[in-house]
Write a protein that binds this DNA or RNA. Sequence first.
DNA 1: AGCGTCCAATACCCTTTGGGTATGTCTGGC
DNA 2: GCCAGACATACCCAAAGGGTATTGGACGCT
Lengths: 92, 92
Amino acid sequence: MSLVQLEYFVAIAEEGNIGRAARRLHVSQPPLSRQLRSLEEELGAELFKRTARGVQLLPHGKTFLEHARRVLAEVEHAKSCLGGADAQRGKA
Amino acid sequence: MSLVQLEYFVAIAEEGNIGRAARRLHVSQPPLSRQLRSLEEELGAELFKRTARGVQLLPHGKTFLEHARRVLAEVEHAKSCLGGADAQRGKA
DNA sequence: AGCGTCCAATACCCTTTGGGTATGTCTGGC
DNA sequence: GCCAGACATACCCAAAGGGTATTGGACGCT
């Protein structure tokens, strides 16, 4: 599991659509599909139900989403507590 | 920044010695040196003072260590809350 | 002072990972 | 039946990550 996987997962969850999440993240769609699948395999749980209109969070996915957000928030906090200058630049 | 970088950083901090941390993590020493430096560059702050006997946490490093531990703990929590089976296996 | 030891840093190579493009497959609407 | 939209797959290439070998520097001992 990696931090980018978590970022991708959160974006997909928020968009409900892998392609749209890809545009938001400025990457193309296939990498997102792959990272998501790889994450699901590592966790041993399906996070989304794939439909013809996009993806939909499953119960496991909802649970994991909260954790993922907390991890990412903690990371941001860690970054912002150090360099000051760098962190501020990053925020903009 | 990646999760492995945080794991490496914590191990180095706990061992006070990159080579020993490397053995503990079952990797060789150079990758750890590199990842640590890369982390410091990204954060824009030196985390350790390099000495002839090993490395020593600087104030920034101590602060960051707490955050890093929190992130990793949160990740473990996220994992353990899903698959059950997989998570239990991972714990052993 | 000189030597040996220990540690981190660097150089170089190779494998693996990750992203991009093109295409396939399926579902739902007209 | 056909088209449009969405995820999955195949294939390629660049980048990241780890390994081995080596260098450079600091400490301790004699």
